[in-house]
Amino acid sequence: MPTLLIVHHTPSPNCQALLEAAISGATAPEIENVEVVRRPALSATASDVLAADACLLGTPANLGYISGALKHFFDQVYYPCLDATQGRPFGYYVHGGSDVTGAVRAIESITTGLGWRRTAKPVTVTGEPARTDTEACWELGATLAAGLMD
């Protein structure tokens, strides 16, 4: 069964709302035969990535960059997964108080280095998530999971 790995750092209610929406989309009733595995960024491993068929990443923007937890995740998995995950489908969401530009740039740069292929439009949110933001995260989860269906 194909696996969607959701790697997230969720330190706030705003990030939690986005994560829950992404999970809801990925596990919607119309999504069949796709396993959804959730891992906090600080506990996700290279084995998790190697066992997955696609990745959904979620992070707050902290001090103009991705969270330290997501950076730690990338530091741990980069070289062990570099050759084996070329072309891996992925998508992401980023939440920030006022600006997410640096976090978006970091994710795009790191995943380009890994050779991953973004297959869903990123969701970027500043401030309290609106209904359209949670709907976009639902779509993000659903799109990545649907892309894995047989």
Rank of each mutant, 00 (worst) to 15 (best):
R131M: 00
A103I: 13
Q76H: 09
M1Q: 12
R39L: 01
L42Y: 10
A26P: 03
H72M: 10
R118H: 01
G141S: 03
S47Y: 04
Q86Y: 04
T45P: 10
R105H: 15
L56T: 03
Y78A: 06
G141E: 02
L5P: 08
E135W: 00
Y92A: 10
S98T: 15
D48C: 07
D83H: 01
V100D: 05
G102D: 14
G25S: 02
L140K: 01
A120L: 04
C55L: 15
I66P: 04
L70T: 13
P40H: 11
G113I: 09
E108V: 14
S12L: 10
V123H: 05
G147D: 09
E30L: 09
A61T: 14
L63M: 15
I66L: 14
G141D: 02
P29Y: 07
L144N: 03
T45Y: 10
A41D: 02
T126W: 13
I107M: 11
A103Y: 12
N14K: 13
C137N: 07
A69K: 08
H95N: 12
A106L: 10
E32C: 06
V77L: 05
R105D: 15
T85N: 02
K121P: 02
A130M: 08
L19M: 05
V77W: 05
A28Q: 08
C81H: 03
I110A: 13
L82E: 01
A17G: 03
V94I: 15
G91Q: 03
P89E: 08
P60D: 10
A51F: 10
N62D: 13
A106S: 15
L57H: 03
I66D: 02
E30H: 15
G127T: 15
W138C: 00
E128Y: 09
I6Y: 01
A26D: 02
T85Y: 04
E30F: 11
Q16T: 13
N33M: 13
L50I: 13
W138V: 00
P11C: 11
I31H: 06
Q16L: 11
L70G: 07
A120G: 04
A54S: 09
T124H: 10
R38L: 14
A145H: 04
S67N: 09
T126A: 13
F90C: 06
L82S: 03
P60E: 09
D83F: 00
F73I: 08
I23C: 01
R39W: 05
T132Q: 11
G102I: 14
Y93V: 01
T101M: 09
V100R: 05
C81V: 10
I31N: 04
D75I: 11
W138H: 12
V34T: 08
Y65F: 15
T85I: 07
T27Q: 12
F74C: 09
D83W: 00
L70R: 06
F74V: 10
D83I: 00
